[in-house]
């Protein structure tokens, strides 16, 4: 049995809700967390388009037509920027977490991050080609 300190006696610093506006690095951290909101909304909209496709091709076409409105286009442009920010920050942090070794040689972080970003571009182009060919 471990003797844990009484929780009521522990010190919890109280942070104001706007602490992330104090420093640029805090703000960028919060921006990175915020990417998930846009990605989630995009996925739900994409899922609705697939649901409409399951109903009929005409229903799907009408839904896609609705996405041509300025509001939806603006949303998708912003979502794209946030998604790219998620990708870049994810690959940069992967380089910190993943340590690739060959004997005594350890791959530098820039190489691990670069390989991820290169792989991401290859995968993106492959999906684009598959989408147009299939």
């Amino acid at each position: 049995m471990i003797n844990r300190p009484d929780k009521a006696k522990l010190y919890y610093p109280h942070m104001p809700a706007t602490w992330w506006l104090r420093k640029r690095s805090y703000f960028m951290f919060m921006l990175r967390e915020f990417t998930s909101v846009f990605i989630a909304i995009y996925l739900v909209v994409f899922l609705i388009s697939l649901y409409r496709l399951g109903q009929s091709e005409a229903a799907y076409a009408a839904f896609v037509d609705g996405l041509r409105s300025p509001g939806w286009l603006a949303f998708h442009w912003v979502a794209l920027l946030f998604a790219i920010y998620h990708s870049v920050t994810w690959f940069l942090s992967s380089a910190v977490v993943l340590s690739l070794r060959l004997g005594t040689w350890e791959a530098p972080r820039w190489l691990v991050a670069g390989a991820h970003i290169g792989g991401w571009l290859v995968v993106s182009v492959a999906i684009l080609i598959l989408y147009t060919v299939l």
């Binding site: 990605i39 995009y42 996925l43 909209v45 994409f46 388009s49 896609v64 037509d65 996405l67 041509r68 939806w72 286009l73 949303f75 998708h76 442009w77 979502a79 794209l80 998604a83 790219i84 998620h86 990708s87 994810w90 690959f91 792989g119 991401w120 995968v123 993106s124 999906i127 684009l128 989408y131 147009t132």
Partner: peptide, 23 residues
């Protein structure tokens, strides 16, 4: 999300509605 979501936003969120490519 890091590998796949950006290209899918381009395809289904921008490309298909704007007619950049045949949907």
């Amino acid at each position: 999300a890091a590998f796949l979501v950006p290209i899918h936003i381009i395809l289904s969120g921008l490309g298909a509605p704007l007619g950049w490519l045949e949907d």
